[in-house]
Design a protein around this nucleic acid. Structure first.
Lengths: 211, 211
DNA sequence: CTGCAAAATTGCAACAAATGAAGAAAAGCG
DNA sequence: CGCTTTTCTTCATTTGTTGCAATTTTGCAG
């Protein structure tokens, strides 16, 4: 018999999804600042207080789906080949994340474009995104150090990851100056953007001394 | 006759300084979250409402002194020599900022250690710091592009700056895992920390492919 | 120094985010 | 069915933030 998760768990998950759906819809429709916690809770048919037992803050609900993307990168790093250099696995990890974004971005993950628009238009959300990015970099660095224990110390691993992610993130920002550009970005061919991001990777790999 | 700034301006500046002083003192003494706007305003002998006509938010008062550090970097970039490569001026700019931190950090700028401690202990402040960092990188990139118009396009300049700053920031974070370490960092010899940061610069310059 | 316009400050009301505490409702389980 | 544990709700409270109208202070012309 498939015991599976009990009713309690299932209900919890349903509420969680309802909150996320309500939040994304409202953010999209009215904007982030114009949507209150009370609105979101009402949209999911729970009390406002309950919202905070699912998400610690209004911003966090936008990042409910980011962990698996990071897991993807971890998996790539953990599967290093014996001939791989740190840069190889890192670039491969980065490529895997890009590819996933390209494949699923528009169709499956409604959160992605909404979040991206908020990141570029709402300061508080941008701050949270950057914080999570930094923490992700630290975890990536730890993983990279573990994969190459005698080639990279902890601090050097942080520098390596920081250089790569820094180049990509800052490039991304220079491509999107106005929030409207996020929509254009998801509407058309993602090729040109990905090409620019690949250039950023090259800059980090070859070193800024090469420019 | 030294016209100078009128009484109105001087008073405004005095109030501004009083607010900053009160805020730093209270943050240091009680902590950030434990200090309310009302406390800060009381410490500067103004109404709480007035606080917001000087600073748009509680976080911003911690960053009242950051603009001149950026100006230092700008100045270095603007004074590029005819033989300089982008990496030369960037590294020089970074060194100038480090040096200034080394010289003045403990003695003159009380804001620096306080802010740093808050950055590492208060999420909201960290978010704001990262946002400002990102915006600074964009401005640096624009300046770098202007200094090397035919060697770096706008996007590539962003990648270059991002790689360098990313390496340094992530290294910094990996050196300071707990907020208490900020105090150790400012208490002892800054040499070892600066050495690590220099290694981060080298990683960015030589490229992560070299590690 | 007097009066007036501009600017700064204030108090007050209001709203939203976040948190704590006590009790009601629901789910799991014997 | 009763009992226990978890979850949800209600209520109150604190704090950051903003708008508005009243008041005070400053700069300046006469």
């Amino acid at each position: 018999m498939t015991t599976g998760p009990g009713l309690r768990e299932r209900k919890k998950e349903r509420t969680r999804q309802a909150l996320i759906t309500a939040a994304l819809g409202l953010f999209e429709e009215r904007g982030y600042d114009e949507t209150t916690i009370a609105d979101i809770a009402a949209g999911a048919d729970v009390s406002a207080r309950t919202f905070f037992s699912y998400f610690p803050s209004k911003e966090e609900i936008l990042f409910a789906d980011t962990e698996d993307r990071l897991a993807l990168a971890f998996a790539v790093i953990d599967q290093r080949g014996p001939e791989d250099a740190p840069v190889d696995v890192l670039v491969r990890a980065m490529a895997a994340v890009f590819e996933r974004a390209e494949q699923f971005g528009q169709v499956f993950d409604r959160a992605v474009p909404v979040r991206l628009r908020m990141v570029f238009s709402v300061p508080a959300v941008q701050g949270m995104a950057l914080q999570r990015m930094l923490s992700a970099q630290q975890r990536l660095a730890a993983r990279l150090h573990a994969a190459f224990p005698d080639r990279l110390d902890r601090v050097e691993a942080a520098a390596v990851v920081g250089a790569l992610v820094g180049a990509v993130v800052n490039t991304m920002l220079s491509l999107v100056q106005a929030p409207e550009q996020v929509d254009e970005l998801f509407a058309g061919d993602p090729g040109p953007v990905l090409a620019q991001l690949r250039r950023a990777v090259e800059v980090a790999v070859a070193g800024i001394g090469a420019s």
